[in-house]
Amino acid sequence: MTSSMAAIVLFIPSCTGVMLVADSIRFGRFHYDSFDSIPDFRSQRYLPNAASNIEMHKHANGYRARYEISASEFKPYLDGLWMQHGEHSAVERGGFMDEGQTLSPEIFNHTFDGLNWTCPANAIVYYSPSEGDGGGATYYFDADADLMFQRTGFW
Rank of each mutant, 00 (worst) to 15 (best):
I25K: 15
H31F: 05
H31S: 09
I38P: 08
N53V: 00
H57E: 09
R26S: 10
Q44V: 01
A51Y: 02
D40F: 14
M56Y: 10
R42K: 13
R42I: 12
I25F: 15
S24H: 10
I25A: 15
E55Y: 12
S34V: 02
F41V: 11
F30Y: 12
A50N: 09
A22R: 15
R26T: 07
V21F: 09
N49D: 11
N49G: 02
M56P: 12
F35C: 01
F35A: 03
L20V: 12
S43K: 10
E55I: 07
R26P: 02
I25D: 13
S34T: 15
A51W: 04
F35R: 03
S52M: 05
A50R: 08
D23N: 11
G28W: 00
D23T: 02
P48C: 00
L20D: 09
S43A: 13
P48V: 01
V21R: 07
S43G: 15
S43E: 15
K58W: 05
H59W: 09
I54T: 05
S34F: 01
Q44C: 07
S37D: 14
S24L: 04
Q44W: 05
A50C: 05
R26I: 03
M19Y: 14
Y46M: 02
R45D: 14
H59E: 11
I54R: 08
D40W: 12
I38S: 02
D33C: 00
S43F: 14
D23F: 00
F30L: 04
S43P: 05
R26Y: 10
G28K: 03
I38Y: 06
I25Y: 15
V21K: 08
S37W: 06
N49L: 01
N53G: 08
H59A: 05
R26V: 06
R45L: 12
S52P: 03
M19G: 07
H57C: 06
I25P: 09
P48F: 03
H57I: 00
P48D: 01
D36Y: 06
P39R: 04
F35D: 07
H59F: 14
F41A: 15
A50P: 07
L47S: 02
R42S: 12
R45M: 13
G28H: 02
L20R: 10
R29T: 09
N53W: 02
F41K: 15
N53D: 13
Y32S: 01
H31V: 06
P39G: 07
Y46D: 08
R45N: 13
D40K: 14
M19Q: 09
Q44N: 10
F27T: 04
I25L: 14
A22T: 13
A22H: 11
R42H: 09
D40T: 15
D36T: 08
S43M: 10
I38L: 04
D40A: 14
L20A: 13
F30W: 07
H57L: 00
D23S: 11
D33I: 00
L47K: 05
L20P: 03
Y32G: 03
D36V: 01
S24D: 07
F30K: 10
A22W: 12
S34C: 01
P39E: 08
L20Y: 11
L20I: 10
D36L: 03
D40G: 10
S37I: 00
V21L: 13
